[in-house]
Amino acid sequence: MLASIRPILLGGAALALLMGWALFFRHRATACDMAEPCARTGPSWHTPGLLGLGTALVGLALAWEPYLEPVVLKAMR
């Protein structure tokens, strides 16, 4: 059932990750203003870590069917 909408789900996940990375780098660049002293108000290390994990999982999902699944099925025989 979900296999029929797999491209839509992967596209939505990729778009959400792209927006997350864009907001992360945008917030990071504007964290220090010239008028005030620079304080560490940016996101913690959890944000890029979780975004990186999500990116890796979406990349794995994109590569699974055409590249990885035949190798795994062949190794299981």
Rank of each mutant, 00 (worst) to 15 (best):
G54Y: 09
A63F: 09
R28M: 11
A63H: 07
E69R: 08
W21M: 00
G12E: 00
A3F: 13
A35C: 12
S4N: 13
P7M: 05
P70W: 05
W45L: 15
L60A: 13
I8K: 04
G42R: 07
F25D: 00
M34P: 12
A16N: 03
L68K: 01
A29T: 06
T41F: 08
L60F: 13
A39Q: 13
L10H: 02
P66V: 09
A61E: 00
F24Q: 03
H46V: 15
L2V: 15
I5D: 02
A22E: 03
L17I: 14
A61D: 02
L60P: 01
L51S: 04
H46L: 15
D33S: 12
M1H: 11
T55V: 07
G42L: 10
L23C: 08
E69L: 15
A22M: 10
R28S: 09
L62G: 04
L9Y: 11
C32Q: 00
L51A: 06
L18Q: 04
L57H: 04
T47K: 02
E36V: 15
A39G: 09
L18M: 11
P37K: 03
W45P: 00
A75K: 02
A61H: 04
W64I: 07
R40N: 15
F25I: 14
W45A: 13
A31S: 15
T30S: 11
A61Y: 05
A39N: 09
L53R: 03
P66M: 11
L51W: 05
